[in-house]
């Protein structure tokens, strides 16, 4: 998937939880990604974050510690 689209989808999720206190919001974002995103997509997102490119909502960054690491990089 294009990095822009991936970033947009992650940012959309972050925006929804932005009204919550920061820690709770970060956990919610992470849980949503864990529950609904295939491991391949989470891996791509982690790559995107690691590369430092892509304009990501601060909550997406905050969610990283709570993200389930995909077992195989590409399912």
């Amino acid at each position: 998937m294009s990095p822009e689209k991936l970033a947009r989808m992650a940012n959309q999720i972050a925006a929804v939880f932005a009204a919550l206190p920061e820690d709770e919001a970060a956990r919610n974002v992470a849980q949503h990604l864990n529950d609904f995103w295939a491991p391949a997509m989470r891996a791509e997102l982690l790559d995107l974050i690691a590369s430092g490119s892509g304009r990501l909502h601060p909550l997406v960054h905050a969610a990283v510690p709570h993200l389930r690491r995909p077992a195989e990089a590409r399912a």
Partner: peptide, 17 residues
């Protein structure tokens, strides 16, 4: 682990996976 949703399948197809 959750699998791919329709739009993600299409994205992955375009990416060759």
């Amino acid at each position: 682990e959750p699998g791919l949703r329709i739009p993600n399948m299409l994205d992955e197809a375009v990416a060759g996976r």
